[in-house]
Design a protein around this nucleic acid. Structure first.
Lengths: 185, 185
DNA sequence: AAATCTTGTTGATAATTGTCAAGAAATCAC
DNA sequence: GTGATTTCTTGACAATTATCAACAAGATTT
C-alpha cells in the first residue's frame, strides 16, 4: 500500500503502527461519478486512493470549482468538515471508478486516543500537506494562467489525460475557454 | 498569553502541558525591519507574536511577494524549512517592533519526544492552520482582485492601518497600482 | 444508430489587471 | 527640520483573461 510506502518513514521505530492503522482502513469501491460526500453535511470519511481519480470541489453561486484532485496513493476528504466537525462547503466525487481505503473520523480518533504515539504520524502527515498547500498559494498569487498551466502539466501530467478540461480550468482558477486557448499553443 | 487562550481547549485534560510548553518558549524582542530569517538558510525558529506585526515573504525574480502576515497572538515561521529541515524559500521580517515567544525546532522536537501526548496539540494546531490555508486557496482561485480586497479588509482591517500597501498588494496577488485604484472607491 | 446532452473550441468583444512613467505624499536619515 | 529616499497615486496604454455566442466533437440514452 503506497500511501504507507511514501510516509512510513515518518514512523520508523513505532511498533504496531502499521497493523493498527490498517485495521481501521476499510476497502471500498465506488462507480464513476459517485458523489462520496455532499456539501452541507458533516464528513466522517477520509479516503486514500488505491486506483482511480477523484476530486474535491465547491460551489460559488452556480459555478463548480475544483480545489483538489487525488489519484493513486493520494488522499482526499472534505477537509473543513472532517477536521472541524461542522457542515462542509466541499463535495467529494469519483471521476473514475474508484478503489479506496476509507478511514472513519471516529475510528481514527479512537485509534489516536488509544495509541497517542500515533499522533505523531498524523501530525507529520498534516505538516507535509500544509507545506504543499502553502506552495500552491504562492503559485496562485504570482503566476499567470499560462505559468500555472505549465506548472500543473509538469507536476501532474496524468490529469490532462484523465480529467475533464473544465475541472482543470477551475482548479487553475481560469475559464475553460482560456485553458483551451492555452492548450492550443 | 493569547496563543494559548485561543488553543488551550485543544488540550483539556492533559496535565503539565501548559507549563512544559511555556518552558520552551523564549521571550524575544526585535526592532522594526529586522530580518528574523533569511531565505536560503534553514529555519529553526517558530514565532508566536505578543505585540507588533510581522510578515513572511519570498522572491519571484526581483519581486517581493508577501505570503503571510502575523499580528498579536498569531504565529509565523519559514514553514517549509521549519518542517522539512531544508533551505527555505521564505524570509521572515518584523514590520513593527516585535515582541515574540520563540520556540526552537529542537526544543519542540525534544519536548514532543519526551511527552508524546503533546503531539496531539501540535497536530490539532496544524489541522486548523491547514483548513485556513485551504480557504485562502479557494479565495485566490475564484475571486476578483476587488473581492479579495473586500474579504481581507473584513477579516483583517488592522492590516490596512499598520502595513505598507505594497505588501498587502502582493499578499492579494495584485499590483500596488491596482490596489491603490481599488481603495480609491 | 439517432437524438440528446455535455464538453471543448473558436471568434468577437468587454472587463480586469498589469506595466510604465510622472508627480505627490509620506517616511527616513542626518 | 531639510534633503533624500521610498511609497502611493494617477494617467495612458498594453496584455491578460472573462464572457457570450456559435458550432464542432464526444458521450450518453433510448
Amino acid at each position: 500500500m503506497n500511501f504507507f510506502e511514501e510516509n512510513i518513514h515518518l514512523m520508523e521505530g513505532i511498533s504496531g503502527f502499521e497493523e493498527a492503522f490498517q485495521s481501521i482502513m476499510k476497502y471500498k469501491k465506488f462507480p464513476k461519478n459517485t458523489i462520496l460526500h455532499e456539501a452541507g453535511t458533516i464528513c466522517d470519511d477520509f479516503y486514500i486512493i488505491i486506483s482511480g481519480i477523484g476530486r474535491v470541489f465547491f460551489y460559488k453561486e452556480d459555478k463548480d470549482i475544483t480545489c483538489h484532485f487525488a489519484a493513486e496513493n493520494e488522499t482526499m476528504t472534505a477537509i473543513d468538515s472532517f477536521i472541524q466537525r461542522k457542515k462542509s462547503k466541499y463535495c467529494v466525487e469519483a471521476l473514475e471508478e474508484l478503489e479506496v481505503f476509507k478511514i472513519s473520523y471516529f475510528d481514527l480518533e479512537n485509534l489516536l486516543l488509544i495509541n497517542p504515539e500515533f499522533e505523531r504520524f498524523v501530525r507529520l502527515f498534516m505538516q507535509h500537506a500544509y507545506v504543499e498547500l502553502a506552495d500552491r498559494i504562492g503559485d496562485l498569487q504570482l503566476n499567470t494562467a499560462h505559468e500555472r498551466y505549465e506548472i500543473l502539466l509538469k507536476k501532474s501530467p496524468y490529469l490532462f489525460q484523465r480529467v475533464a478540461a473544465k475541472h482543470i480550468a477551475s482548479f487553475l482558477g481560469i475559464s475553460p475557454e482560456t485553458l483551451s486557448r492555452i492548450r492550443s499553443k
